[in-house]
Design a protein around this nucleic acid. Sequence first.
DNA 1: CGGCTGCGCTAAATCGTGTTAGCTTCCCAG
DNA 2: CTGGGAAGCTAACACGATTTAGCGCAGCCG
Lengths: 368, 368
Amino acid sequence: MGRRRVTLADVAKATGVSTTTVSLVLAGRGAELRISDDVQRRVRSTAQELGYRRNTLSVGLRTGHTQTIGFVSDTVASSLLAGNMIKGAMEAAHQRGFMLFCGESGGDPDVERALVEAMHDRRVDGIIFAAMYTRTVAVPEGLDDGPAVLLNALPAAYSSVPSVLPDEVEAGRAAARILVDAGHREGVHLVGAGPGLDDVPPNSIAARERLIGMRQVFDAAGVEVVSAHQCPKWMPEDGYDTTREILRHHRPRALVCLNDRLAFGAYQALAEAALSVPDDVSVVSYDDHPIASWVRPRLTTIALPHHELGAKAVEVLFAASERRRRAKSAPVVHRVPMSVQLGASVRNVSAPSRQSGDRASVHAHKTK
Amino acid sequence: MGRRRVTLADVAKATGVSTTTVSLVLAGRGAELRISDDVQRRVRSTAQELGYRRNTLSVGLRTGHTQTIGFVSDTVASSLLAGNMIKGAMEAAHQRGFMLFCGESGGDPDVERALVEAMHDRRVDGIIFAAMYTRTVAVPEGLDDGPAVLLNALPAAYSSVPSVLPDEVEAGRAAARILVDAGHREGVHLVGAGPGLDDVPPNSIAARERLIGMRQVFDAAGVEVVSAHQCPKWMPEDGYDTTREILRHHRPRALVCLNDRLAFGAYQALAEAALSVPDDVSVVSYDDHPIASWVRPRLTTIALPHHELGAKAVEVLFAASERRRRAKSAPVVHRVPMSVQLGASVRNVSAPSRQSGDRASVHAHKTK
DNA sequence: CGGCTGCGCTAAATCGTGTTAGCTTCCCAG
DNA sequence: CTGGGAAGCTAACACGATTTAGCGCAGCCG
């Protein structure tokens, strides 16, 4: 029940020493300041016995360190990305005895500022400012009053705040390489962005960099992308509509969808058109959203390293706190590699032996 | 940059009054304690001018209130439920100037205890202990050292901690009513739980209560459920396998899937069997997972009120803090209603006019 | 002229911890 | 016998707010 908590003074009195001594012993500075082994033992044992726990508020007030990190995101709900990034951050933080303050701005700059202020009021040791899809963000005023990191985002204007991002260019290369390695040279279409590097959703870094990476590999392999289609929203419906549009004019051999939800929509349209994945059309996409493993056949997708991103952000934050004591250094961009998740949605068209996902069933269309 | 924050003393000195006065004025107790209007004005204006913000740590140390709530969940990553509950809680908390500490236990009782302790160390004003799927939980030791609420969970043993849960029984009735109202009397199958009330995933409250609700309505309408199938995991693959199993022996007219992911798997199996939703088979499910609106036709589903659950938990927590000052009252279970999300996956088989989802396309199977 | 009352404000204690400066006691060398 | 140093601990202040008790002053009354 609401029993009063045990304080340092309680432990001191019970042990028969001063609070100073208890404080020193429990901070591990006993030896350094010549507290006898006997007293140290007694202090520790009574502290344990009384169930003493230090009051973090008090420590924070005195030392300025609260063992706490603020995590401000734009939206947590709409995407699993958020959950996993937070989880990664929480685990990394928890490992060092830190806790996370979580706040969601909904993308509203006023709320962003308010959250950053509220966190500074609580004297967090640093703030992670996260975007739920990789994009440029306006750094809120006051963010750099303390150590800070942008997660999954780059600053829109110049800023001294470091960033942690997925390595999207390399991901682009990886996706293209999968198709090229599987022998695909013709009938490749892009769903979600392109053909130009600016034909991407607003502020989207992911789309642009993926396009860059893909172009590198496709150009080198002599692959010409037949058509590319920008979609503003990257939802299944957009993938569905776009794929139907493609099918109206072409007979595609491979689709690169800029995320898994688009790919899901593409699956639906292909099924309606009685085209089989991967026998008729190979599909590659990005993100490794849960849906990627739910569809049949499973998608081959380049995974967003949600968890690692969150953990890396915490790591960078700690490094920044260290560095802060010395000089202010230039902003840094940290890239976290994205890994290939192999599904059965790509068919090797060069190999003689048929190598599609073995029992993979397909969707087909029954006309009204 | 790291400029020293403005303190109460700074404001006091700049105004030419004592810190007491400033504190009283800013706490709104100026009138009550007879501070002249003139001084009040001056205090407020210099505070504003200097950009004074109170140090929450200090206030917390002095008053015992930190304007902070702890949110401990078992898993945040695997389900969107989590994100939305947290979001609901965050918004409700933010409205009253509170922030949320977030922690994830991964279901490990040791971690749970550690998190609860860490939050009490930071002197949170209350703790929300949340489960990501509705179930019974062991209340961690120390949770009731302060105000606390179980979210989406009931205590396994007796506990004085109140609970906030979705109204699953009513949801069960709603799902059954949808089919009954649409004229379905025969060929109804359950995917995910049943036939007995104990044929449910371990500790699952949702499954059991949904079964209860459905049984009430089906019994009253004289509907006999043809078959019911417990699935341990409620993932798409389980829905797929179960539906194939059903199709081996029956020709179903309606499926009730105990969540949307199961329903998604069912869609896949039905498509393979060249059965159309809803023309051949109606499908109803639970949760309103994003997938429900991505499939074609959209699922009719009973929505989990994630957001409201989170908000309600905060509300109950505040009420508990109030009540705590008086007597300890009996534990309470709060139920939050679940709403019907209409899709196009149910066909009215009684009405003369055909009333299926108009342009809804269907999945069919192309045999190898 | 002294005492009482009400007004407007402040001194000082307090919350729980960290930290600096210094106090006592003992030992030993000079 | 005395001075110096080390060992082992503690007193006291600081962190930034809240809160209780009460101070000085003016005015009024008897």
